[in-house]
Amino acid sequence: MRTQEARIKPRLSERLSRTGKEFWKQRQLQAMVWPGIIWMAVFSYIPLVFLYIAFTDYRISVPLFENDFVGLKHFIAFLTDDRFWRAVYNTLGLSLLRITIGFCIPIILALLLNELRCERFKKIVQTVSYLPHFISWAIFGGILLSWMSESGIFNQLAISLGLQDKAILYNGDPDNFWMIAFLSDTLKEMGWNAIIYLAAITSIDPELYEAAELDGAGRFQRMWHITIQCIRPTIALLFILAVSGCLSSNFDQVFFLSNSANMSRSETLDLYIYNMGIVSGRFSFSTAVLFFRSIISYALLRLCNFTSVKLTGESII
């Protein structure tokens, strides 16, 4: 393609007018895209100018561009901070659990629901599993902490089952934190996250299953070769989006579950920004860390998509 184009090398004006004609031909489509672009310009791009404060010592009484320019001062401040890197480590650790095991669980739930033959039971399970999504972390965190306390139900259960001989303060040990955060998040969101896969499964042609059954395919085989294959684009899309979000964590969750005893494993990047920036009103510092994270996340998304193009020849996004 490219070499051909290079060989022909039409003059610029010619090319422009051709594009112009094409553009006019699809003016209806363009007219549907442009409201979106304008929306983004107004609501997303205008505020981006403000990222400039990451390079200044911002004071709110001073107009934006009149603040003292300090270059990369704030970036250097966090990049040379051990605690920043510890926060990155914790965020990545939590994300790793979330985008591997955590990512599969809603898919498995959707598959299991799809295998249910009793429609009513299916609907009940679906509804029930999506309920915890509506409990805010402020409340869910509080409940969990009391269940995890020394006299809480988890300890009672574990002792009566003979798993441990005395009560353990689960949330006081930093090594437990990732697991606690991961499990509680999974419980809260699995039903909710399964919805999108259930929606994807609905677009599968039932005739495919019937044909496979006639060919003698077992249930596992049908699950694997039909259901999973058909929802693969959705899985791939959500996976890429999840990977690009691996430097983010659920702020509310870590905020309510962390304490001074488990801080070494519970301080994620979001909490770091809160503790080091927002608490003391350091606008420029917080903006610098967020800006840095945005760049990395964006790069990750592009990298994933690039890899997908290289491997499968198709761009997911």
Binding site: T19, E22, F23, Q26, L29, Q30, M32, V33, G36, I37, M40, S44, Y45, I46, P47, L48, V49, F50, L51, I60, S244, F283, S286, T287, L290, F291, S294, S297, Y298, L301, I317
Partner: peptide, 29 residues
């Protein structure tokens, strides 16, 4: 409109849109 094949400027539009997911100016702006 973005999902139609052959849309002129699609790649640029996509990048414009993608940036909005990752970058935001924060509360004050």
């Amino acid at each position: 409109a973005m999902s139609r094949p052959g849309l002129i400027g699609k790649k640029v539009y996509m990048k414009i849109a993608m940036i909005t997911m990752f970058f935001n100016g924060g509360l004050i702006p």
